[in-house]
């Protein structure tokens, strides 16, 4: 009955969904650096437009993105406030002890605010339009260079995908054990901190044992199905570049050029 959503993926079929996960992950990653090229109004306008287009390309409603920004709002406002009151230069409107309110400060605060918000929005675009499994595959691809220095990237990727696969299973298990203990009169929701942390034992211990059981069963099943480590394995799931990815890359290159030219 429980169908929980892992990560923040929201099923859809708009343009951005068609982009390859590797492309999206890479662009998200590079965007964080690219945004530092923005240093004046025109460049921030271009970056904002780019982000706006990306959001439109998801075909999702605005509140999805607000949900992405919400948890970070305080941090963004705090950082912006630091810029606002501690930057000097330009016209001074107000000065009291170490606090300055200057024209530069105001502009810097707005820029910082935009920088943070745009980064969060772009990564939200990536996470809501890409399945966790595809993100995990894309990470493996991005980490490929580490293979040469001996990092077991393929194993890590397998571990990650199995972990993702078992999130709903463990979630169901938790719910089931919680209900069973509630039926035996356990109370998880009242009392002080000590009472509550004691009350958690009837939940945590069975869950730990269940997880161990799953791990043992899974290891046996994997061995029976011929798993001998990742060397010599072939791959069924292969990410493949499509014509849409040229659009993704093209748009990002245009962004870079504009930021450079206008900056």
């Amino acid at each position: 009955m429980t169908k929980i959503i892992i990560g923040r993926y929201i099923p859809g079929s708009a343009l951005i969904y068609k982009f390859d996960a590797r492309g999206k992950l890479l662009v998200t990653f590079l965007f964080v650096f690219a945004i530092f090229l923005a240093n004046n109004w025109p460049t921030y306008l271009v970056a904002t437009l780019y982000t706006g287009l990306a959001i439109m390309g998801t075909g999702l409603r605005a509140h999805v993105f607000w949900d992405g920004v919400k948890p970070m709002v305080l941090l963004i406002l705090f950082t912006s406030a630091l810029q606002l009151f501690f930057s000097t230069g330009g016209t001074v409107y107000f000065h009291w002890w170490g606090l300055w309110l200057t024209s530069t400060g105001i502009v810097n605060a707005i820029f910082i605010f935009l920088r943070f918000t745009l980064i969060i929005l772009i990564s939200t675009v990536m996470t809501v339009t890409t399945q966790p499994l595809a993100i995990s595959d894309a990470m493996e691809w991005l980490l490929t260079p580490l293979k040469w220095v001996g990092v077991p990237v393929a194993q890590l990727a397998l571990v990650m995908s199995i972990a993702l696969r078992f999130v709903p299973t463990l979630f169901d298990e938790t719910l089931k054990i919680m209900n069973a203990q509630k039926a035996r009169g356990a109370d998880f929701n009242s009392g002080g901190l000590i009472k509550r942390s004691k009350a958690i034992a009837p939940l945590i211990i069975p869950l730990f044992i269940s997880s161990l059981e799953i791990a043992v069963d899974l290891a046996t099943a994997m061995e029976a199905r011929g798993y001998q480590g990742t060397s010599g394995r072939t791959r069924y799931r292969v990410l493949s570049w499509q014509k849409y990815d040229l659009l993704n890359a093209g748009a990002f290159v245009v962004l870079l050029i504009l930021l450079k030219v206008l900056g």
């Binding site: 054990i177 069973a180 039926a183 035996r184 009169g185 009837p202 211990i205 069975p206 044992i209």
Partner: peptide, 28 residues
Amino acid sequence: LRQQVSLVFQFPEAQLFESTVLADIAFG
């Protein structure tokens, strides 16, 4: 109500957690 109406889920052995059999039965 929970004391008067009791529920046993499928595969209830998953709910055991105490250090002894007796303590586990006495939990409820």
